[in-house]
């Protein structure tokens, strides 16, 4: 019977119905996010958006991020509508600059997707890492997907992805960089893994952001070091691994020499 119920007595009732209908999705990951779907939740978040604080603090894990992305992805909120709401909160449009700029990234990625279609899964350009696409593994390493690398940032972020379906942008970029550059895995494997778990997963923003990190859609690879990681993580993650070492320790030149030996 292809028609699904829509008369749920409670959230638990709804979850149980979908768990029963889609056992394969529950097998991928059985977690359910605290983030609620629906227009009411989206409007409540939109009411709380502070464009000025967003511009000032958004890179910090504890910053005034909007968490609107699942709602924008699924059209619960429109891009233009969200921009209008942001502009209405400031006396001068320039005070909403960063928020509108970030919404523009989403518009940009959608426009690129309209041009390239399914080629969003292909490298837009060669890697600028001194390595060829063939040098990268096709599959995600088990220790990463099982959150068993022993690194507090990597494992903590992976668990958060599974449990909430959301990661702060700094975590996304750094986790993607770890997968592609430190573990030398093709960005496509990482992008597909994110799509499984992110509430806001879509091939436009997700794949093209992975390509940006990988350097197949940018002039250079995105990397970071432990100092940079600690700057934005607000004490939640140190970047240390069990035993006290860290793959992210060192100056940028030292890290580049380690992970891009042929560059």
């Amino acid at each position: 019977m292809p028609t699904l119920r829509r008369d749920f007595e409670s959230r638990d009732d709804l979850i149980a119905h979908y768990r029963e209908q889609f056992p394969e999705a529950a097998a991928v990951s059985d977690w359910v996010s605290d983030t609620r779907g629906g227009r009411d939740a989206a409007e409540a978040l939109l009411d709380n958006v502070d464009p000025v604080e967003y511009g000032r603090t958004r890179n910090h894990l504890s910053g005034a991020v909007t968490r609107l992305s699942p709602y924008l992805r699924h059209g619960v909120l429109g891009l233009a509508e969200t921009r209008d709401a942001a502009l209405a909160k400031v006396d001068d449009p320039s005070r909403a600059y960063k928020l509108v700029n970030e919404l523009a990234w989403r518009d940009y990625y959608r426009r690129v997707l309209a041009e390239i279609g399914d080629a969003v899964w292909d490298d837009r350009e060669p890697y600028k890492t001194g390595l060829d696409a063939e040098d990268y593994a096709d599959d995600m390493p088990d220790d990463v997907t099982n959150a068993e690398t022993g690194n507090d940032f990597v494992d903590g972020s992976v668990r958060e992805l599974y449990e909430t379906g959301y990661l702060h942008n700094q975590q996304r970029m750094k986790l993607a960089a770890y997968v592609v550059h430190w573990r030398r895995v093709r960005w496509q494997a990482g992008a597909a893994w994110f799509l499984s778990h992110l509430l806001d997963g879509d091939v436009a923003s997700n794949n093209l952001s992975w390509q940006w990190v990988a350097s197949t859609f940018s002039h250079q690879p995105y990397i970071f070091n432990q100092e940079n990681l600690r700057q934005w993580m607000g004490g939640r993650f140190t970047g240390d691994s069990v035993g006290g070492g860290s793959p992210f320790r060192g100056e940028y030149d030292e890290i580049k020499a380690r992970i891009f030996p042929r560059a």
């Binding site: 709804l14 889609f22 990951s29 996010s33 779907g37 939740a41 379906g165 778990h197 509430l199 997963g201």
Partner: peptide, 10 residues
């Protein structure tokens, strides 16, 4: 994964 389907259902 299940959480995405639940989000859409909500």
């Amino acid at each position: 994964s299940l959480k995405r389907l639940v989000f859409m259902a909500e």
